Simulated assay, not measured.
Amino acid sequence: MKKTILSMLLLSLSSFAFANVNTAQQNLAKNYPNLAVSNIANTEMRGIYSAEIDGQVVYLNEDAEHLIAGNMLRLKDQKSLTQELIVKNNTINWNSLPLKNAIKSVRGNGKRQLAIFSDPNCPYCQQLEVELKKLNDVTLYTFVLPLKPQSVAPSKQVYCEANPDFAWQQLIGKGIAPKSNKSCSNPINANLELAKKLGVSGTPAIIFSNGYRVLGAHPASEIEAMWRELGL
């Protein structure tokens, strides 16, 4: 009997929590239908729900009349629940990446790993490449992602070279495209499909080995800091 009552109570509480989230979603859709809010969920703070707008974590209450943008901190251990949520919402399954389609470059012992989505004619990608050269003991997997029309042909050609890594460094770093006219199978279309699947709509994008994804040309010092923060 006690087990039955406990099960009913837990089910009731679970349904109540879902109803609150559902109410917030309904109020938001009713009152502000043009506001693109996603991933509404419960938080540890009663009556406050987390959500996402343009990749930014925000918080709202059940009537969805107010939004708060900022850091939610749990006082007892000084843990940032907002940062935890940002990591969770921007994490993919590293093991699902088809690394065979990437250009591999090993530096030092190669212990740390990064996957990079990069377009050779993207100026921010070129900036990131300079920063990546400052990193030690890392294995880089570069998924060449030619989003610009003029990038398609040289990107395909890179994969046909005897040393794709060197060819890529020449292309991204110096703007020197492969001179040969070799033809070969290449993963460019597969890379474009992969980016679409992962929601990578711009370059550069960086994926850490725990699956955490960030966009932009982050300095080497920031990448090192993220490694430490993520425990990688």
Rank of each mutant, 00 (worst) to 15 (best):
Y32E: 10
P33Q: 15
N34F: 08
L35V: 07
L35M: 15
L35W: 02
A36V: 02
A36Y: 00
V37H: 00
V37D: 06
S38C: 04
N39T: 02
N39D: 14
I40L: 13
A41Q: 04
A41T: 08
A41I: 05
E44P: 07
E44D: 10
E44R: 12
M45N: 05
M45W: 12
M45E: 05
M45P: 04
M45H: 10
R46M: 08
R46P: 14
G47F: 10
I48S: 11
I48C: 04
I53H: 14
I53R: 13
G55D: 04
G55Q: 14
Q56E: 11
V57Y: 06
V57C: 15
V57I: 15
V57G: 13
Y59I: 08
L60Y: 04
L60P: 02
N61V: 09
N61A: 15
N61E: 13
N61H: 09
N61L: 07
E62R: 10
A64D: 05
E65D: 14
E65R: 12
E65I: 09
H66I: 12
H66Y: 15
I68W: 06
A69Y: 14
A69D: 00
A69R: 08
A69S: 09
N71W: 12
N71I: 09
L73C: 08
R74Q: 12
R74L: 10
R74H: 09
K76N: 15
D77I: 03
D77Y: 04
D77L: 01
Q78E: 12
Q78V: 02
T82M: 04
T82E: 05
Q83H: 10
L85N: 02
L85S: 05
V87C: 12
V87H: 05
K88W: 09
K88Y: 11
N89Y: 09
N89M: 12
N90D: 13
N90L: 12
N90H: 14
N90S: 10
N90P: 02
I92A: 13
I92M: 13
N93T: 15
N95G: 08
S96V: 00
S96K: 11
L97S: 09
L97P: 07
L97R: 05
P98V: 00
L99C: 01
L99I: 07
K100M: 07
K100E: 11
N101C: 03
I103D: 06
I103Q: 02
K104F: 01
S105C: 02
S105A: 09
S105P: 01
V106G: 00
R107A: 03
G108K: 08
G108E: 04
N109R: 01
N109V: 02
R112C: 07
R112I: 00
R112Q: 07
Q113C: 10
Q113N: 13
L114R: 05
L114V: 04
A115W: 15
F117E: 14
S118E: 11
S118W: 09
P120C: 05
P120K: 09
N121A: 01
N121V: 06
C122P: 06
C122I: 05
C122F: 10
Y124T: 10
Y124I: 07
Y124K: 10
C125M: 04
C125R: 06
Q126F: 03
Q127W: 01
L128K: 14
L128M: 11
L128H: 06
E131Y: 08
L132F: 12
L132E: 07
L132P: 13
K134S: 09
L135Y: 02
N136V: 01
N136A: 14
D137S: 03
D137W: 02
V138A: 00
L140A: 06
L140Y: 07
